[in-house]
Structure formats: C-alpha cells, structure tokens
Amino acid sequence: MKTGLSLQQRHTLRKIYLFFGYISVGLIVLIWLTPIIWMIVNGFRDPTDPFFNGILPTKFSLVNFQKVLSNKATMRAFGNSMVVSSSSALFTLIVGCLAAYGFSRYRFRLSSAIRVLILIIRLFPGVLLSIALFHVAGKIGVYDTFLPLIILNGLLNLPFSIWIMDTMFESIPIELEEAAWMDGATRMVSVFKIILPLIAPGLAATGAFIFLLTWNEYLFATAFIRSPEKMLITTAIAANIGQYNVDFTGLIATGMLASVPLLIVFIFIQRFIVSGLALGALKG
C-alpha cells in the first residue's frame, strides 16, 4: 500500500465518502423530479388561485380533474389513445414473441444478420417514415385511421421488445420443452402450455412498456390523424398548448391524468424492462 493511512482512518474516510454519496444521489433525484412534483402539486391548484401568486398553490381543489373528466373531447382522446396503445402493444407482443422465440431457440445462418436488420429500424427517423408513408396511407385508404399508428409504433418498438423477450426465453432451459416433446407435445403446444405461462409476468411488463411508449408518442399521431374526434391524448394536449388563452390548471390536470397513472405502472414494471434493455444493449 502506498498511502500511509491506517485501517481506522480508511474506514472513516469511507464513511465520509458514503455519507456524501447518499446525500448527493438523494439531492440529484430530488432535483430531477422537481418539475414532475411541481406538475402533480399544481394539478390540485384551485382555478381561483392564479399562477402569478406563487410557485405552489395556496388553495387546493379537485375542480380541475372534474373539468377534465367531464370534458367529452378530452375523454374521447383518452379512449383513442387507449385503443391505439393497447392494439399496438398486442401487435408488437405477437410479432416480437414469435421472433424472439425463433432467435433464442434456433441457430441459423442469417440469424445475426436479421437481428442487425431489425435493430437498424431504430435508426430510421420517424419524420422520414411519416413523409414516405403519408401518401401510401392515403392511397390504401388508411389515412385518418388508427391503423398506421398501431403498425408504425408497433414496428418501432419491435427491436426493444425482441431484446427483452429474447432474454426471457433464454432464461428458460430448453430441457423443459424437450421433456414436453418427449411426451408427444408439439412445438406450439410446448410454447403455449409451458413457456408462455412461465414468462407471463415478463410479457405483461413488456406489453405495458410498449403501451407506455405508444401512449407517449406524438409525431405519427399528428401526421396520420386529421379528424378532431380521432385525436389522441398527446395531440389533444399539444393542440391546447398552442392556444392563445390557455387554461393552465386544466392543462396541467390533463397532463397529469395522461402521465401519472402510467408512471405508477412504470415503477412496477421497470425492473423487468431494465434487465432486458441492459442485456440487449450489452449484446448489441
């Protein structure tokens, strides 16, 4: 050892270091969450307590949420987002599950090339896809429908979900399936009866994650939808931001309803997502 510190001194130094470590991480997290906390607190701000008065509300009420929940257009936007996001999640889960199973259980020549091909779609700018597919969507009659949103979002989330599901499949020993085949089960039966139940929690988490990403998406939602009654929640909020006479408290309440429920789900699923994403990144 080069340093001339005694074990005791090292121990003290370590303790001081840890103390500052905890403080700084705690502070960073707090600073990072400030805007979100600000949004949540101000969602309860009474409309008669204007924002000029101060950062934090002095009068609290639930009026904003009542207003949002009784606003037909906003509620329809929530419903539309729900339809698009859940269809997109289902679509990606099916396609992604098949592909991930194929990648994890078969060794074939173009395997890594195809993996790279699928990853490359993450490089494609969304605006390019919108520009290219806008006319196509018009020609085949799906412009101003949810279909392009479901497929495009599903596709862009495919690489992520294949990563995540691939690691889930690989965590299940093939022997489990082989045992079932010995008993005469076909591949499909072994997948549906043995594998899928085992990874069901992971699948649900992946689905929820894709739901969240699609829910948050804006570009496709504004590019492929024109009718106001088909607006998604992101486009509805964006349209309100641009307005001259913005009802700030109402807007914040809408933004909060559009994000906080998902954040709560996210806290529960992030453990699954994190390990899958990280493993994927290490491989890629």
Binding site: W32, N216, Y218, T234, I237, A258, L263, F266, I267
Partner: peptide, 12 residues
C-alpha cells in the same frame, strides 16, 4: 425514481 421523467410523454 430518477427514471420517471423519461416515462413521461415529451408532450407533457
């Protein structure tokens, strides 16, 4: 916790 802003829509 620190990951939460990432899960909020860029529109919000």
């Amino acid at each position: 916790l620190i990951l939460l802003p990432w899960a909020v829509s860029p529109i919000v």
